[in-house]
């Protein structure tokens, strides 16, 4: 009986509390007229950044595509004359993107970065498909100093074997010295 009364009273109390909200102000932000504050590290859509030398950072490793929950990133690797890997095409279908940022987490070269832009509505869905030229920005984004090829051991033009960070000069196999 007590329990019955308690549950009944709890309903009444709830109704009363909700009723009191008649006099509270609405929390809604009237979005298109009132813009919310988006922090610089806010995760909206992605961009492809360039390394400090001004060359594209993406090495087409495919990790972003693998991490992407709606599978909306597709790319094809190519090898450039100078030995660098690069994406021959890099396509993201923003009509599928859920802006989860997992591609940014997965990116080992800091190429993919999310920016505070999410206003991408289009009347034609086809316009939501972004190619590399739409995504590439002329800058390093949030990470100013990182350059993958200065860390990785692969030789490219202008950075031979042994010239990466923390690398010893190449071993002379024919040397008898220890």
């Amino acid at each position: 009986m007590m329990q019955l009364w308690e549950s009944f009273w709890s309903q009444i109390r709830t109704i009363w509390r909700v009723l009191k909200h008649t006099f509270t102000k609405a929390e809604t932000v009237q979005y298109p007229e009132q813009k919310p504050y988006l922090a610089p590290r806010y995760r909206g859509r992605i961009v492809l950044t360039k390394d400090p030398d001004g060359d594209e950072r993406c090495v087409a490793c495919n990790l972003c595509a693998a991490a992407c929950p709606p599978d909306c990133i597709a790319l094809q690797q190519g090898t450039r004359e100078d030995g660098r890997w690069y994406p021959e095409f890099f396509r993201i279908n923003f009509s599928r993107c859920i802006m989860c940022g997992l591609c940014e987490e997965a990116c080992p070269t800091n190429a993919i970065q999310l920016i505070p832009d999410f206003e991408m509505c289009e009347y034609d869905r086809q316009n939501m498909v972004y190619e590399k030229e739409h995504l590439m920005i002329d800058g390093t984004g949030k990470y100013h100093d990182y350059n993958f090829y200065r860390v990785a051991g692969m030789a490219i033009e202008g950075k031979d074997k042994g010239e990466a960070e923390n690398e010893a000069p190449p071993i002379d196999v024919r040397s008898l010295l220890p």
């Binding site: 009723l19 909200h21 102000k25 609405a26 009237q30």
Partner: peptide, 8 residues
């Protein structure tokens, strides 16, 4: 409902 849920 909006009024009671603090929205418009």
């Amino acid at each position: 409902l909006g009024v009671w849920q603090d929205r418009y």
